[in-house]
């Protein structure tokens, strides 16, 4: 079974600091990591490989430093990696990103399944996975929480929707985007780390992908970021301290009063 896993390198956002004057993120000292939601796709791929045999190829489009994310994926059990890099890719929106990744996947030859994270924690669009399936014209199952079985060239999966779980059977090759519930991503092993360190990672550019310049990066992106601003997040909230019985009782009463005033009591 040939498994392909497109991933993204993102800034570690648990300690995001914003420059209030410019409204942009302070990038200095911020570590780059594999998009946390992509770890579930990598783990799902490695598990499928363990069960069915075959290989897992991980690929990313990003700056040269994104190679680190690819090596981490190899350390988790992926077999090979491809880095798509070059300044002509900069400024890609989801459409152009999906187009580039689809072209790269097309170059890889036959495959059975593409696994992607539900979305990236920086852009937070969740669009690239479905867009790749549309470009490649292969079946899509989004929000997959469980791969029930893969038999006779079909995958039976469960998807997590707003109101429940839907079971879908899709013919392979297919693209699945996976949610956190699907597994617990493993940590890299010592052997994996050694393999990752030694791995040769081919670098692909526009020429190899045979994409016209006008179809990628900013030029190939239908959408444009027009303005960035900082949202109003702080509310002038009332604060009460409940340090003894009386103040706790008062706080409880005030909360209920607040709920009542907002007409939220049924």
């Amino acid at each position: 079974m040939r498994i392909i896993i497109p991933i993204k390198q993102v800034p570690e956002t648990s300690n995001v600091r914003m420059d209030e004057s410019t409204g942009t993120m302070v990038r200095e000292g911020v570590e780059s990591i594999i998009n946390p939601l992509d770890l579930y796709a990598i783990e799902a791929g490695v598990q499928l490989k363990e069960e069915h045999g075959g290989s897992a190829t991980v690929l990313t489009m990003g700056p040269p430093s994104a190679e680190k994310a690819l090596r981490e994926a190899i350390a988790m059990g992926c077999d090979e990696a491809i880095l798509i890099t070059g300044k002509e890719f900069a400024g890609s929106d989801t459409w152009a990103t999906a187009y580039t990744l689809s072209s790269a996947i097309g170059k890889l030859g036959a495959y059975d399944i593409i696994l992607a994270g539900e979305r990236a924690t920086d852009g937070d669009t969740g669009q690239v996975g479905p867009e790749i399936s549309s470009f490649l014209d292969i079946p899509l199952a989004a929000y997959v929480s469980s791969i029930i079985e893969i038999t006779d060239g079909k995958a039976t999966v469960e998807r997590l929707l707003e109101d429940g779980y839907e079971t879908l059977r899709v013919e392979l090759p297919a693209l699945l985007t996976v949610v956190k519930e699907i597994n617990f991503p493993r940590l890299p092993t010592l052997g994996g780390k050694k393999k990752a360190k030694e791995a040769e990672i081919p670098v692909w550019s526009r020429g190899i992908l045979e994409i016209q310049e006008g179809e990628l990066g900013l030029k190939g992106s239908p959408t444009r970021v027009d303005k960035i601003f900082t949202p109003k997040v702080l509310r002038d909230g009332m604060m009460l301290k409940a340090h003894d019985e009386q103040s706790a009782q008062n706080a409880a009463k005030e909360i209920v009063k607040f709920i009542k005033e907002k007409n939220l009591l049924q």
Partner: peptide, 11 residues
């Protein structure tokens, strides 16, 4: 975007 830390206006 970025966990709600910024707002982006897109055209």
């Amino acid at each position: 975007a970025i966990g709600g830390n910024i707002m982006a206006r897109i055209k």
